[in-house]
Design a protein around this nucleic acid. Structure first.
Lengths: 245, 245
DNA sequence: CGCTGCCTTGATCTTCTTCAAAACGTGTGG
DNA sequence: CCACACGTTTTGAAGAAGATCAAGGCAGCG
């Protein structure tokens, strides 16, 4: 029996397969299809195919032809952009119900970033062409897609602002707050961020180096704002962190 | 008669009003409505109202209720985000045919950024509610909106990557290349960026200070990559700049 | 028990910001 | 047409924030 110390839950330890009931449940929760009648939903569901991935698996690479749209059924996905200098920038972490891949309805494009399974994972995929037909046939789906993209654009602009104008400390505090709000679950140690999160990845999210991330995290820990361990962080004082960000 | 030295064209010097012919012409060129039949286009056109602005005028402020969607008919708009520390971050510069404001189809939200007339300007506006109806009635419009947002999101992610991983020099070179490609017109001095562009604004676009922007611009000028003056920059060696970015 | 990554901490160095002041270009009013 | 006044641009020097280089410590896992 493997001894696990990390408080972060391990998702889908044994199986990466999604049962059919999970599929309908997930699709129903996706903002895209929330407004659809059950019959329509079952129809749309038939167009999706499911795929399992292990932690670290590459779903697609930047530059690959953008053939599909994906919806996260379970697990977490990270979208990464590689620089010529070899360092990685972590753009987004996606939780179940969120979509990524080719949302554009035009053809012949390539993915602008790389998608990697952050945890064990189950994805629902649909071809870009089929998705285009779904959107054309169901106007509410298009509206939902617009809303989702508009929200992501606002978040990206927020990130641009933080990177332009904030200190490393502020960016890390802000990122931890956002992660805790999105993925946090209450534990005795505080709001535990349900994600294997190394100092290196935190650095990639905030535009700094591993060393700086480590220093700032240590500082926050000493100030009692967070609890930390190997690959995990829990937020003990959310208001305190927000004040710094 | 005021003598003008800047090589940048002055748009709409006298009138900020758009004639009705210009309106149809502009709406027809907007990706949103490009696929619409002329009759439908005239119908949609009737829902828009036009407004003129002078340079520096505020179109809306961050936090205002997000009531409208705007399309640039003539002139340039800049989207700005203010920080608590008082500095501004310039998120995007929009040219004729581009849309901004509330693209979301949900109600009761607020603008996440401030929109300012960068030059004299003519805008076409439509209420969020009316726009929602247009989108619901014309699926191609929704598809176009998705495409536009997807493209802007990719650009924003690119910006995040540059801010996270690049030097000030690289970011400024990249920004100048992008501006030249988007707004450049061939002149004897090279590709002139059709935009009153101060060092300060360039700094706000690239996440640095006025002084650093000035130093880098001077360096590029001495290297023969660009020509500069007060409030304007022309790119003389696009390939050279791209190599730096 | 020891190996492999991850995390931490220190010292040094580079980049960029900050503060300050001078030079310049542009449009204005004489 | 010229000189003045304003905002922009430039340049210098000092300082801070963070990157880089280097080494040691610790936890998890076989």
């Amino acid at each position: 029996m493997p001894r696990r110390k990390s408080p972060v839950d391990q998702e889908w330890v044994e199986t990466h397969q999604c049962s059919i009931t999970v599929r309908l449940d997930v699709l129903g929760r996706v903002p895209f299809f929330a407004g659809l009648a059950p019959a329509k939903l079952r129809e749309v569901n038939a167009l999706f195919h499911e795929t399992g991935y292990g932690p670290g698996d590459v779903i697609y690479r930047a530059g690959d032809p953008a053939a599909r749209l994906y919806v996260v059924a379970s697990g977490k996905v990270k979208l990464v952009q590689h620089t010529l200098a070899g360092q990685d920038v972590l753009l987004e972490v996606l939780a179940p119900g969120e979509a990524f891949g080719n949302l554009s309805t035009l053809g012949d494009e390539t993915y602008p970033h790389t998608a990697i399974a952050h945890t064990a994972l189950c994805l629902l995929g649909i071809g870009a062409e089929e998705f285009r037909r779904v959107v054309a046939a169901h106007p509410p789906v298009a509206l939902a897609a617009v809303d989702m993209l508009a929200e992501r654009l606002i978040a990206a602009h927020e990130q641009v602002q933080r990177l332009s104008a904030g200190s490393a400390q502020q960016r890390i505090a802000y990122t931890l707050v956002k992660l805790a709000q999105k993925l946090g679950t209450p534990r005795d140690v505080g709001l535990l961020i349900q994600l294997p999160l190394s100092r290196d990845e935190l650095a990639q999210m905030t535009g700094t180096t591993t060393e700086t991330a480590s220093r700032v995290v240590s500082q926050f820990r000493k100030a009692g704002l967070i609890r930390t361990g190997r690959q995990w962080i829990a937020v003990a004082d959310l208001a305190g962190l927000e004040a710094l960000a």
